[in-house]
Nucleic acid binder design. Sequence first.
DNA 1: TGGGCCGTCCTATCGTCCTAGGACAGTGCG
DNA 2: CGCACTGTCCTAGGACGATAGGACGGCCCA
Lengths: 137, 137
Amino acid sequence: MGQSLTIRVDPKGDRPPSEQIAAQVRFAIAAGVIEPGARLPSVRQLAVEALVNPNTVGKVWRDLEREGVLESRPGDGVFVAVAAPELCKDARDRELTARLGAWVNDARSAGLEEGELRELFERALAPRRLRRVGERS
Amino acid sequence: MGQSLTIRVDPKGDRPPSEQIAAQVRFAIAAGVIEPGARLPSVRQLAVEALVNPNTVGKVWRDLEREGVLESRPGDGVFVAVAAPELCKDARDRELTARLGAWVNDARSAGLEEGELRELFERALAPRRLRRVGERS
DNA sequence: TGGGCCGTCCTATCGTCCTAGGACAGTGCG
DNA sequence: CGCACTGTCCTAGGACGATAGGACGGCCCA
């Protein structure tokens, strides 16, 4: 319980660091890893951990406050809002649905049939099983 | 048959226009919509259709030629290479697998169980059916 | 041969995002 | 009170991609 939250940022990912951080925070709240009233790492502290600029973290905190997910108390810290879980679950479902819809759309336009989509999905669900032939379970 | 290829670019999408065009071309080749030897739209022509800069299209043609997908004959046009379908199918499968893997990873970190993942997947496969609650199965 | 189309290349400019470093006011605690 | 910590704000700069406009040589066909 010491570390309630671990943020990982890939500086050369296809999505900017600020969005990566925001998405991870939203998902953590939706999953119940962080609960309303909980305090988040400070701008400078998380900046060191995630290897980003303090301004980048500050921007995320500000954006999430405008969404109603966080409550910022200058001089004290930022905290998870009461309505945050509901908001984040909605946002999570919307984002996951949109991404999966785009994936299905792209896969179909690339000539894959429904059976192949299902096969890829099953493989993605169980990446540990049926990896190679002779592998310890 | 008149229009062998229609490229759509969303200027404010999360991915840059050049990558959107390259992905659509690769997918079209993988799907068999365009076959080896076929001629692609000219840099200037596609630039007008897709509402992008000719330099952007030129960059895509050059990148895809370095991949071995296209063959550029200056003064004549760019054409689908013989080995392109194989290359594009591999690239397509790798990209779709990676994207779906990332999706499953994110969905799990957001607190969703395997059953919920399957439900979202079924819904994405059949967006027309089971829209609302009270519907015959 | 000449005109039109082709891909390529060049320089310059713009917008967006992250980085960098500093300054400020508010809060909590000893 | 005084100090450490908090979020916020400001200016400046760089990286990256797209845009803009032009110039070059190659290819096809009348």
